[in-house]
């Protein structure tokens, strides 16, 4: 095995190296999950309780009190399907965004492909997603939507890919930015809060008549991913042109994020 160490060079992702370090992704993910559930009193029950409570609260407020109309899809299913992807996005960019700083003691002392850190923090949010997904499928069954499960499973990979590309792109971008500018991370929770309201999660797109907001939805890949998922459940035809746009946008975000990360990566240890 022969290799060179040289000054910062051209942008390139070393996939074979990432593959070689795949076990480390596993161990970091495993650590994040273990620590997360060791520190909470309710432990693993929290993953199930948290979305359920949110669904109950949103359903009560918006459906009962404000009688929001969500068409053929019952409100709890409506909001749950939105939260399913939203949770990946919000907890993904939060944990990936902070990941480089919280692991700075390791970054300063040992080499491994730095991308492993945001990757594993997103993988660990996927574990939560898997649990919530099975909970959602059960809810679908409880509501008697047997025929929806097939199309739902069919569109899920597309929605999931769009959401993950967006989350990973933004997450690694924030991770690099946080290393450089230490005050940026305080803005991130606020940002996700604003985005929660700019994404049709608790209200349907059809209830909005402001043209500007409609444009925002179109340009928000996560919004389209959520719409696609709901189309699958209700059996309506998705707007494929929007899906294609969302896919391209998310791929763009992914590339920008990862490029910025790789560019900053070269001096992480000098900064952190």
């Amino acid at each position: 095995m022969e290799y060179e160490i040289r000054p910062a060079g051209k942008f390139k992702i070393n996939f074979s190296e990432l593959w070689e370090f795949r076990e480390l992704i596993y161990f970091f993910t495993w650590r994040d999950i273990k620590v997360k559930y060791k520190q909470t009193v309710l432990g693993a029950a929290w993953v199930i309780l948290q979305p359920l409570l949110l669904v109950v609260i949103f359903s009560y407020t918006f459906s009962r009190l404000l009688s929001m109309e969500t068409g053929t899809l019952q409100y709890p299913l409506f909001v749950f399907s939105g939260l399913l992807l939203w949770n990946i996005f919000s907890s993904g960019i939060n944990s990936a965004g902070n990941s480089m700083i919280s692991n700075s003691n390791i970054i300063n002392k040992i080499y491994f492909p730095r991308l492993i850190i945001p990757i594993s923090s997103i993988v660990s949010t996927l574990v939560d997603f898997a649990i919530q997904l099975s909970l959602f499928v059960i809810t679908l069954l409880v509501y008697g939507k047997y025929s929806s499960i097939g199309p739902f499973i069919l569109v899920l990979p597309i929605s999931l890919t769009i959401t993950l590309l967006t989350t990973f792109g933004l997450g690694s971008f924030l991770a690099a930015l946080n290393v450089k500018y230490r005050d940026f991370r305080y803005i991130v929770p606020f940002m996700t809060q604003v985005l929660l309201f700019l994404t049709p999660i608790i209200y349907p797109v059809s209830s909005i008549n402001v043209p500007l907001l409609r444009t925002v939805f179109i340009l928000n890949p996560v919004a389209t991913a959520i719409e696609l998922l709901r189309n699958g459940i209700t059996g309506t035809a998705p707007q494929w042109d929007l899906v294609l746009l969302a896919f391209s946008l998310s791929a763009g975000i992914f590339l920008i994020g990862i490029t910025y990360f790789r560019k900053t990566e070269q001096y992480f240890a000098d900064l952190a």
Binding site: I5, R6, P7, N108, Y267, A269, D270
Partner: peptide, 8 residues
Amino acid sequence: ITLPTSGK
């Protein structure tokens, strides 16, 4: 952990 400025 950190890259050199020059040399290899």
